[in-house]
Each structure stands twice: as structure tokens, then as C-alpha cells.
Amino acid sequence: MELLYTREHEWIKIDGTTGVIGLTEYAVRQLGDITFVELPEVGREVRQFQILSSIESVKAASDIYAPLSGRVTTVNEALDTHPEIINEDAEGNGWLAGIEISEPAGKKALMIREEYDEYLRGLP
């Protein structure tokens, strides 16, 4: 099990060839109350750092980017009616989608937790 982060504040928990994707607590704190989550279509192929789906909060609408390339295998349907789960547990029950990873080499463009924390400290 490996947990990696993007500069756009997504996380991906990797177990073998599958990965579960979500937004970091930092991102969610910036967004405020989440009001809507557009879940990606199951079966869709996504490319690393391309738009996976979008999310809306009381403050803004934002895109969510795929941390790695792959095919969407599962989505967190509970978010359709209860997007607030993301505010309550961003890095756990508030996961967005699972993917079958097609290009694991993309991992070298992601950060481990220590690097992500360091990256956050450098943000304004």
C-alpha cells in the first residue's frame, strides 16, 4: 500500500494495480462546505493530470485531476446525495473514485506525504 499526492491536492492510495483517489484535507478546508460532486463515469479512461471530474463548494467550482493514468472502475456513489462526507472525512470515506492503473511509471511525478507537507508549507 502506497499513498501519494499531487500538487493539485489529490491523493491516491495504491494497492497493486488499483488506486483509490480523493481530495486532501488541505484542499477541502480551502473549498469549505462541499455541495456537489460530479462523479466520473465507470469505464472511462483517464490520463494523468487530466480532468477526472469536478467538485463544487459554497465558495467555488473546481476540477479534480487524475493522479495517474488508468480506467475508472468504481465511484463513491454516496457522494451524490451526501457530498458533505468529503468535509467530514476527506482522506477516508470521502474518496471519489477507484481506477485500474495503466501506467504505474507516472508515480515518480507524485509526492510522498513528507514531500506534500513540505509543498504545503511553501504555499502562500
Binding site: 469549505g32 462546505d33 455541495t35 459554497v58 465558495k59 458533505e84 468535509n87
Partner: peptide
């Protein structure tokens, strides 16, 4: 703008 949260 907010204290504990806009929705609550």
C-alpha cells in the same frame, strides 16, 4: 465570511 461553516 464564515465561522464554523457556511451551510451550518
Amino acid at each position: 465570511i464564515q465561522y464554523e461553516g457556511i451551510l451550518s
